[in-house]
Computed example of a mutant assay.
Amino acid sequence: MILVIMGVSGSGKTTVGSFLSEKLGWTLYEGDDYHPKENIEKMGKGIPLTDQDRTPWLLLLHDIIQREMAAGTNAILICSALKKLYRQLLLFGRCALHSSHGVAEGGARVKDGLEGVLFAFLQGSFQLIQERVQARRGHFMSPSLLQSQFDALEPPSSAENALTVDIQKSMSEITAEIERTLSAHL
């Protein structure tokens, strides 16, 4: 099983992912660690990333998912995965770039989800997340980018094998909800 913890910056992805990784003994991949230097510099300057900026990064994260699935191991990936296209890139790699209305090159059907991958969408209000972002220190992303993340956000649909978790809940409630859903999929 691969758990992708997603949401806008400041939603608590790293905190939740680190807690679950330690508790479950699953390997943790922090998606931000795989951004190219240019992306980090842009975000540090308050410049939103484009789809073109994100695509090579997402394809690299897709390779990590594929490697872990091929090895039959459980892992957690932290990635904003803001748009449906981004989630499709994580799941299907370059095939997602060549699909049109769910049909990839050669006529193969691109499904909304992939068995063995669960998205946990950490959802919260702009105000709550803005307070969190302004309070944190040492993160490369400029707090001024939060609105652009909310503008780009396409919450996952029910067809995408995703769980939506309200971040107003306590850490124990959030992680317990994710663990219950994981147990149902294992």
Rank of each mutant, 00 (worst) to 15 (best):
D32F: 14
L24N: 02
D166W: 03
S9A: 15
A152S: 15
L58T: 13
I5T: 09
M69H: 09
S144N: 10
G25H: 04
H98F: 10
Y86N: 11
M1W: 05
A135V: 00
L90D: 12
G44E: 13
P48T: 01
A104R: 11
S148C: 06
H62C: 05
S125I: 11
I65P: 03
R180C: 02
D33K: 05
H101T: 03
G107H: 07
G124S: 14
E38G: 09
S99R: 15
S99Q: 15
R94S: 14
A176G: 04
P56A: 09
I47L: 05
L97F: 07
A71K: 07
E30G: 01
G46M: 08
S170P: 05
E177C: 07
L58G: 03
S183Y: 00
Q149F: 10
L163E: 00
G7C: 08
L49V: 06
V117H: 01
P155R: 04
D32K: 11
E38F: 11
E38I: 13
E68P: 03
L28V: 03
N39G: 08
G31Y: 14
D32I: 11
D166G: 09
K111N: 13
H62E: 07
Q123E: 13
L61N: 05
V110C: 09
A108G: 05
I2S: 04
C79W: 12
L59Y: 04
E154W: 08
F19Y: 02
I178K: 01
S100E: 14
R94Q: 15
F121L: 06
H185Y: 06
D32C: 13
L49R: 00
I2T: 00
P155I: 02
L59M: 08
V8Q: 13
I47C: 01
I65L: 03
F126A: 12
N39R: 10
S11M: 07
D112L: 11
S21V: 01
L24S: 06
R109I: 15
Y86V: 02
T164H: 01
L128K: 15
S11V: 09
K169F: 04
L61E: 12
G31E: 14
P56F: 08
W57L: 05
P48W: 00
V110S: 01
L28F: 15
L163H: 02
D33V: 03
R136A: 06
L58Q: 05
R109K: 15
L153D: 06
Q149I: 08
M69I: 05
G31Q: 09
L128F: 03
L182G: 01
L186D: 00
F92A: 14
Q52I: 09
L28R: 13
L91A: 12
S170A: 11
R67D: 15
L28M: 11
L3A: 11
D166M: 07
T50L: 06
L182E: 00
T181N: 00
P143W: 08
Y29N: 13
K111A: 14
Q147L: 14
L91V: 11
L20R: 09
E30Y: 04
